[in-house]
Design a protein around this nucleic acid. Sequence first.
DNA 1: TTAACCTTGACACGATCGTGGTAAGGTTGA
DNA 2: TCAACCTTACCACGATCGTGTCAAGGTTAA
Lengths: 111, 111
Amino acid sequence: MLRYIERAGLVGPGRSPSGYRLYGAAELQRLRTLRELLERHEVGLSELSFAARMRHDAELRGATERWFEEEPARPEHVPAADWLSWEQSKHERLLTAVVPPYTQVQVPEKA
Amino acid sequence: MLRYIERAGLVGPGRSPSGYRLYGAAELQRLRTLRELLERHEVGLSELSFAARMRHDAELRGATERWFEEEPARPEHVPAADWLSWEQSKHERLLTAVVPPYTQVQVPEKA
DNA sequence: TTAACCTTGACACGATCGTGGTAAGGTTGA
DNA sequence: TCAACCTTACCACGATCGTGTCAAGGTTAA
């Protein structure tokens, strides 16, 4: 478990010259507060691990930030005029939205 | 899947008066960039969901921040003097560290 | 009215997470 | 030297994640 937490990027203890992990009082405290954090907020280790990743990996942090920023999922939608022409490609919607990330949305011209 | 993503707090579409989900071009774009973000950085939905939680829940965000801040897992350890007296409670170490969050570390006095 | 959509809820199922156990071998104090 | 620790690597196993499908019922345009 300790190795697991270590690999997750949280609470990595130092090593003795021969490779033994050295857990001091600081690390113990760290582990306890970690536990508390996880349980009190219903958070998984992998999620905190992700938070740790973001603190080191600026690339990832930036991309995530940007995604949340760029379009707050506007609740204001197409005003029933666009809705109609949009209505015709229901199947394509689902498919293109979910399955292949880069598929273009092809709305077939309906005569 | 779309409902799953919606429950995760990412890409929640608006609703028609009768409850239908309305996916517009904006949402489609959102879903695609979401996919790209997930795949390009080896991130899971639950992890991004956690990021979303942090942006809304100031409590959680604060607690997490604080944890990462407070003790960067110092590599400098007890200087071999403390190490000895500490050595005697190896089993307790593991147990108290991992198992019950609030257990006190009881170092038994060794005569 | 009816067919073709949508909704929620439930179940299925492989993949990963969280947590433990081994087994094989290196360090170290007695 | 030797017993008691540690290390890594691997396997197991329930819980959750990610994804899909089905059933029962509501909306809506024809």
